[in-house]
Design a protein around this nucleic acid. Structure first.
Length: 615
DNA sequence: CCCTTTAAGCTTTTT
DNA sequence: GCTTAAAGGG
C-alpha cells in the first residue's frame, strides 16, 4: 500500500519539541529566509525540523536534495545526526551536511578538469594555513619579501582578493602559478580561501557544472550565517542567486565574533536584499534560567537598539539561575575556590563534569594551569579542550579508538557495532544476503581484536603503539579508508591525525596505567572542558566559570568594544543555570586591573541578578 | 655574552 | 595593553 504523503500545511513536528509560531512559519517558508535568533533559541533544531518537513512532505521533491553548510565540522555532523534520528535512511540520503571548506574543496576535487590548464592545481597539492611559510617563500621567489607584519598582511590579502583569471597583477599571477603547480623545492600549496576562489572560477566558466549543482539541490541551509566571509558569500551567490533553489540562513548578529578573521560585517543586510529574504525572529529560549536571561537582556541593549525579551522554558521557575562575580587578590586562592566549587557542584548538586565548563577569553593555558592542578588534587580531570575537540571528531581516530575499546572490553556494544559496520562497508558486503560471508568476517574481526588485545598489553613505549595503530589501519585497509572517507583521500593528513592520537593516548596510558581508562580520559569522559569563548560558541553547559574577567584578557576592548562585547555575550550565554565570573589582582605573570572593561561589569550590575563576593 | 630595544602575537575554521 | 621572542648594540 502506498503511504499517504503529508501536505506541508498539515505538517507538525512529531517528537515533542514545541516550535514557536515564527519558527513554524520559517520551517514552512519555501522561499529564501533569514532566521535571526539569540543564543539557546534552537536555531540548529529549527534547521533539523525544516529538513524533516521538506523531506517528509516531499516539498524537497525527490530526487532533489538539501545541502546544509556550516562552519565547524561538529556543527555539520550534529545536524546530520539529528536528521538521521528522525527520518528513514532513504530520506536521510537526500540530506547532505558539510562545512563551507569541504563544500568548496569537493567542487575543486570533482571538477578540477574543468579549469584551464594554467589554473589547474597539481593533483598532489597540500593545504596550509594562509599565513604559512610556503606562501611567504613563494613571494620571496619573485623578489617580494614579507618581512614586516603590514606588508605580509597586505600581500596575503591581495593573494585572495583576486578574481580569476588574473589579468593586471603579474606578481600575484606568478605567485598563484607557483602555488598551484609547485616547483623543485616545494609542493603545490593551496589555502582554503584559494580553493574557494578556484571553486568560484569553475562555476563561473562552466555553465553545465553550475546547472547540475542547481538541479541537485533544491534547498540550502546556512548555519551561523553571521560568520560568513565575503568570499564564501560570493560562492553562495554564484551558485544560487536568482535560481529556484531556496535558501534558509540562520544566525545572530549579537554573536558576531569573527569580524577580525574576515566575517562580512553587513552580511545580513546584503543577503536580505540580494536574495529578497523574509526575516523571522525567534523569541523562545530553551537554554538559560530566567535570572541569567536578565543579564543577556541588558547586554543586548548595549549591542543593539532592538529590545530582546527571550521567553524562558516553562520548566524553570522565575528565581532559577545563579550569577556571581568573585574577586580575589591572588590567583592561587582563585583556583582553589573554583576547584572546591566544582567539587561541590559534582558531589552535592549532581552536575556531571562534562556539564561544567571553564572559559577564558583567550590563552587557555595561562589562566587554567593552576586550576587544572587544584582540580586534580580533588581527583577531577580537566583539560584544554581545544586540542582534543577536533581530533576526536575524526573518523579515523574513532575507528582506531573503537577498535581498541572492542578489543579490551567485549561488552562495549557501541564500539563493536561501529567497527563492525565499518568493516562491512570496507569489505563491500553491506546489504548482502550471504550469512556465511558475515559469519566468516565476524570471526576474522574477533580474531584480530584478540590479537590487538594481546599486543596492547605488551606495549612499553609509544613507538610500539605506533606500530599497532598502523597494523590496525592495515587491517581495515588504508585504501578502503581513503576511499570511504574522502577527507583522507589525499596527502599525509591521515598520518598526522594517527600520530597525534598515538601520542595523546600513550600519555594518558602512562598516567593511568590502564588502557580502558586511558581511552576514556582521552575521549574526555568525566573531564571538565576548558576552552576559549570562541571555541565555546554553539555549546551549552549547566555551569560556566568565566575565568580572568580582567583588562588583560580583554586587551583589545578599547579598539573593538562592540566585538569584544559580543564575545562577552557569547561566553555568558553558554550557561544554563550557574554562571561565575572571576577576577584576580595577581596572576602568575602580571598584575591585573578591571577598569577598562568597567562597562562589562556595569552590565552585570544593571541586570540586578549578579551577586558580588570578595575572597 | 648580556642588556636594551623593537616587533609580533593574542581570538578561528577548514582535508 | 601586556607578554614573549627576536634583533641590535656595546
Amino acid at each position: 500500500m502506498k503511504k499517504m504523503l503529508t501536505s506541508i500545511k498539515d505538517w507538525y513536528p512529531t517528537d515533542g519539541l514545541i516550535l514557536e509560531d515564527a519558527a513554524l512559519r520559517a520551517v514552512k517558508d519555501l522561499k529564501n529566509s533569514l532566521i535571526v535568533a539569540g543564543p539557546g533559541a534552537g536555531k540548529t533544531e529549527l534547521l533539523a525540523q525544516k529538513a524533516c518537513c521538506l523531506l517528509e512532505t516531499n516539498s524537497c521533491v525527490n530526487p532533489k536534495k538539501i545541502l546544509a553548510i556550516s562552519f565547524k565540522k561538529d556543527a555539520a555532523s550534529n545536524l546530520k545526526e539529528r536528521i538521521s534520528l528522525r527520518v528513514s535512511s532513504k530520506l536521510e540520503s537526500r540530506f547532505r551536511s558539510q562545512t563551507f571548506d569541504s563544500f568548496s574543496k569537493s567542487l575543486l576535487d570533482r571538477f578540477s578538469y574543468a579549469l584551464p590548464e594554467e589554473y589547474r592545481p597539481n593533483s598532489d597539492f597540500e593545504i596550509v594555513d594562509n599565513q604559512q611559510n610556503a606562501i611567504v617563500k613563494a613571494f620571496a621567489k619573485f623578489g617580494v619579501y614579507l618581512n614586516d607584519k603590514d606588508t605580509k598582511k597586505y600581500y596575503l590579502n591581495n593573494l585572495v582578493s583576486v578574481k580569476l583569471p588574473i589579468e593586471d597583477d603579474p606578481l600575484i599571477k606568478n605567485v598563484w602559478q607557483l602555488l598551484l603547480k609547485g616547483d623543485e623545492d616545494q609542493k603545490a600549496t593551496l589555502s582554503f580561501p584559494m580553493i574557494n576562489i578556484l571553486a568560484i572560477y569553475i562555476l563561473k566558466t562552466n555553465p553545465f557544472i553550475l546547472m547540475s549543482l542547481r538541479e541537485t539541490y533544491s534547498h540550502i541551509f546556512l548555519d551561523e550565517f553571521q560568520d560568513t566571509t565575503g568570499l564564501q558569500y560570493e560562492l553562495v551567490k554564484i551558485c544560487f542567486l536568482n535560481t529556484d533553489t531556496s535558501i534558509t540562513a540562520v544566525g545572530d548578529n549579537r554573536q558576531r565574533i569573527m569580524i577580525w578573521a574576515g566575517a562580512k560585517r553587513d552580511i545580513f543586510d546584503c543577503y536580505k536584499k540580494d536574495f529578497k529574504a523574509t526575516e523571522y525572529s525567534l523569541i523562545m529560549n530553551h537554554r538559560s534560567a530566567p535570572r541569567l536571561l536578565e543579564i543577556q537582556k541588558i547586554v543586548n541593549n548595549y549591542l543593539q537598539d532592538k529590545p530582546f525579551a527571550p521567553i524562558p522554558n516553562p520548566k524553570w521557575s522565575k528565581d532559577d539561575g545563579v550569577a556571581e562575580i568573585w574577586y580575589f587578590t591572588d590567583f592561587q586562592k582563585e583556583s582553589k575556590t573554583i576547584a572546591v566549587k566544582i567539587f561541590e557542584l559534582i558531589q552535592s548538586y549532581n552536575v556531571r563534569p562534562e556539564e561544567i565548563c571553564i572559559i577564558v577569553k583567550q590563552t587557555v593555558d595561562k589562566y587554567a594551569k593552576s586550576i587544572i592542578e587544584d582540580l586534580k588534587a580533588l581527583n577531577i580531570y580537566s583539560r584544554n579542550e581545544t586540542i582534543f575537540q577536533d581530533l576526536l571528531k575524526e573518523d579515523v581516530v574513532n575507528l582506531i579508538l573503537n577498535t581498541l575499546k572492542s578489543a579490551l572490553d567485549t561488552y562495549d556494544s557501541d564500539a563493536w557495532l561501529s567497527i563492525w559496520h565499518s568493516k562491512i562497508i570496507f569489505e563491500g558486503i553491506q546489504g548482502s544476503k550471504n550469512e556465511y560471508s558475515f559469519d566468516k568476517l565476524r570471526k576474522v574481526l574477533k580474531q584480530f581484536l584478540e590479537l590487538v588485545r594481546r599486543k596492547l598489553n605488551l606495549i612499553t613505549c609509544v613507538e610500539e603503539l605506533r606500530v599497532l595503530f598502523i597494523e590496525i589501519l592495515d587491517f581495515y585497509d588504508l585504501n578502503q579508508i581513503r576511499k570511504h572517507y574522502p577527507q583522507y583521500a589525499q596527502g599525509t593528513y591521515i598520518n598526522k591525525l594517527r600520530e597525534n592520537a598515538e601520542d595523546y593516548l600513550y600519555n594518558y596510558f602512562q598516567e593511568t596505567k590502564d588502557w580502558i581508562l586511558a581511552i576514556d580520559v582521552f575521549k574526555g569522559n568525566d573531564s571538565i572542558p576548558i576552552m576559549t569563548i570562541h571555541k565555546s560558541k554553539g555549546l551549552e553547559y549547566e555551569a560556566v566559570f568565566f575565568v580572568g574577567f580582567d583588562d588583560n584578557a580583554f586587551w583589545s576592548f578599547y579598539k573593538q568594544e562592540q566585538e569584544d562585547t559580543c564575545t562577552f555575550f557569547v561566553g555568558l550565554s553558554r550557561a544554563k543555570r550557574y554562571l561565575y565570573f572571576t577576577f584576580s589582582e595577581s596572576r602568575e605573570w602580571t598584575y591585573c586591573t578591571n577598569r577598562n572593561i568597567s562597562t562589562l561589569y556595569q552590565m552585570l550590575r544593571e541586570s540586578k541578578v549578579v551577586e558580588e563576593l570578595g575572597f
